[in-house]
Write a protein that binds this DNA or RNA. Structure first.
Length: 600
RNA sequence: GGGGUGGUAGUUCAGCUGGUUAGAACGCCGGCCUGUCACGUCGGAGGUCGCGGGUUCGAGUCCCGUCCACCCCGCCA
């Protein structure tokens, strides 16, 4: 039977005791992490949010405390009344922050007994993810997750302090809002009052924050939950948190100048000084040089276009491909990587036989390897290729002796994607990535829209409220795909941690964009009519950004999944293993909503 | 929707070409032990081999289906 707290008040956290506390009477509350029963004396490691400390129960100090310690088991919740004592030299534990002291127990109260947990409450457990998620409250008790959740708190507080200092108001926006046709699939909430009508949970507060600019709020931010009903990944959950920001009268530089110091502040939390300004790269360059719109700059190995060289080389390896418009691009694998011929052949198969790029041209001929040696070049010459061009190519890609040059030939987009994925795989495989580095990058000048071959229409790359670059606006009618946007993404270690744009503040321009996106007048009016109308009442130029708080926290805490920085995350099938959601509901509930459930 | 990896004790795993009573470590329970901190030591309990079907004299093992977790592609303005 558990005992009550009575008149006990905690005086210290377990993890904060030190030599300065020696001699003090203390009251600790915490969980029994381990018990070491030596018969005459019992040691209990007591754990709380701040750490561990050793409690000693000896009969000559207190018979009752010793007896109580005897029946303590793992994860019992205890109140310990005692005195802090210095440990004698040979009993100091250098592996424990509080290892120079211990608490001599005068009284131990068992506030709560505990069942044996399904896994050990400690770091470095090997337990499968489903068991951890089912017992999430126990998983969260582990020191590592405690640190992650604390860091997340510190980050959100730092963001709030900073944004407040910069003059931004934190303003809440609706969770029950309106479905929009563009973008991700919405989570829908049926209306009981209006049968057949639905609210949508926000994919982001995009329209509301723009309306706040129309309202003259000038500077807005919000740490806000967003919902997207799409399939999950290690860095994607169906509900996630954004630091949402919008301001009036900004240039792109204004956003940059606001956000870079924010990251500098946040990184100080983990003792890291970030170099500013962050580098910038156009979308076009990112795609060509890194095969990605979010290049990981923690290692080099850029991609080099060698279309002209391959054309001039005189090899008949890719008959007609380049002439038909394909590009040739090269990736240099350093000789020091020691990559094997077998591995290269495997890469070749994986790349072009569909594992990496499903729709790449399925032809092994599209990948060509050249080793940077005199013999290899001489061999090329024997096949009738130009030795001079081959040497020029090696020089252009920066290959040094014995490096292996991989050259892919394909249509530009598929090639960029394939080499981009390959670069990341090789970077990991050859351990080129500095695990302690934090490399920021602004990616700018995104295309405003791209042609969706399936839907046979243009779709926004960012979202339909993004303004075109002034110098490209004249192309909107003639060549929409060529128009670049005042959009920017913030990339950190190859992960998109933020994205935003300067918005359209002119209702005529906004209407034109909707038209280009093949939204009929009726549909645009139905979906965004209130918004277009609002733009007509004096809209300041405005723009903003949204930062992915979960991903930021994941990177700062060194985790590889955002599940480890979210208190109660969902599985890859969007289920909550602990609460058991989603779940069926009572027939009356469905009936009230005017909904008929079709069961498979 | 597609591809990959995995599912055997509370946990992590082993279990061969199908063959007696399915093992190990840690954890758990009990005894002993006054300086342990991976305590030690002696003893013990603990299994719907994810689920369903099939082949077979016999299935943890082979076949088919299905469910769950994780990673990736599609998808994610």
């Amino acid at each position: 039977m558990a005992e009550t707290l009575g008149d006990l008040t905690r005086t210290h956290y377990c993890g904060q005791l030190g030599e300065g506390d020696v001699g003090k009477a203390v009251v600790l509350m915490g969980w029994a992490a381990t018990r070491r029963d030596l018969g005459g004396v019992v040691f209990v490691d007591l754990r709380d949010r701040e750490g561990l400390c050793q409690v000693v129960a000896r009969p000559e100090v207190s018979k009752d405390a010793h007896a109580a310690a005897d029946r303590v088991r793992g994860e019992y919740v205890l109140a310990v009344v005692g005195e802090v004592a210095a440990r004698s030299g040979e009993t100091v534990n250098p592996n424990l922050a509080t290892g120079k002291v211990e608490v001599l127990a005068r009284e131990i109260r068992v506030l709560s007994e505990a069942r044996t947990p399904p896994f050990a409450i400690e770091d470095d457990i090997q337990t499968s993810e489903d068991i951890r998620l089912k017992y999430r409250y126990l998983d969260l008790r582990r020191p590592k997750l405690q640190r992650n959740i604390r860091l997340r708190h510190q980050i959100t507080m730092e963001v709030r302090r900073y944004m407040d200092e910069q003059g931004f108001y934190e303003i809440e926006t609706p969770m029950l809002t309106k479905s929009t046709p563009e973008g991700a699939r919405d989570y829908l909430v049926p209306s009981r009052v209006h049968h057949g009508h639905f609210y949508a949970l926000p994919q982001s507060p995009q329209i509301f924050k723009q309306l706040l600019m129309v309202s003259g709020m000038d500077k807005y931010f919000q740490i806000v939950r967003c919902f997207r009903d799409e399939d999950l990944r290690a860095d994607r959950q169906p509900e996630f948190t954004q630091v949402d920001v919008e301001m009036s009268f900004p240039r792109v530089q204004s956003i940059v100048d606001l956000i870079e110091p924010l990251f500098a502040r946040v990184f100080r939390l983990i003792g890291v000084d970030v170099a500013r300004p962050f580098p910038r790269m156009s979308y076009a360059e990112a795609m060509e040089r890194y095969g990605s719109d979010k290049p990981d700059l923690r290692f080099g190995m850029p991609i080099t276009d060698v279309t002209d060289e391959m054309k001039a080389l005189g090899l008949d390896t890719f008959p007609g491909l380049i002439e038909a418009g394909a590009r040739a691009r090269a990736l240099v694998i350093p000789a020091s990587g020691g990559i094997s011929g077998t591995r290269l052949r495997k890469i070749n198969e994986e790349l072009w036989l569909g594992r990496i790029v499903p729709d790449a041209h399925a032809s092994k001929r599209n990948l060509f390897t050249l080793k940077a040696t005199d013999e290899a070049v001489a061999n090329l010459a024997k096949k009738g290729a130009s030795e001079t061009v081959a040497r020029a190519l090696l020089a252009k890609v920066g290959a040094r002796k014995d490096d292996v040059v991989l050259i892919g030939v394909d249509e530009a987009d598929a090639l960029a994607m394939a080499l981009g994925i390959l670069r990341l795989e090789l970077g990991k495989e050859l351990q080129l990535v500095d695990p302690k580095a934090f490399r920021f990058l602004w990616v700018t000048d995104f295309p405003l829209m791209e042609y969706d071959k399936g839907a046979k229409r243009y779709v926004s790359l960012h979202h339909p409220f993004t303004a075109p670059l002034d110098e490209d606006a004249h192309l909107l009618e003639s060549d929409p795909g060529a128009v670049r946007a005042k959009a920017y993404d913030l990339v950190l270690n190859g992960s998109e941690v933020g994205g935003g744009s300067i918005r359209i503040h002119d209702s005529a321009m906004q209407a034109q964009i909707f038209k280009l996106l093949s939204l009929s007048d009726d549909e645009a009016k139905e979906r965004f009519g209130f918004f277009i109308e609002a733009l007509q009442y004096g809209t300041p130029p405005h723009g903003g950004i949204a930062l992915g708080l979960d991903r930021m926290t994941m990177i700062l805490s060194g985790e590889s999944s955002i599940r480890d920085v979210i208190a109660f995350p969902k599985t890859a099938s969007a289920a909550d293993m602990m609460a058991g959601s989603p779940s069926p509901v009572r027939d009356e509930q469905v009936k009230d909503l005017g909904i008929v459930v079709v069961r498979k």
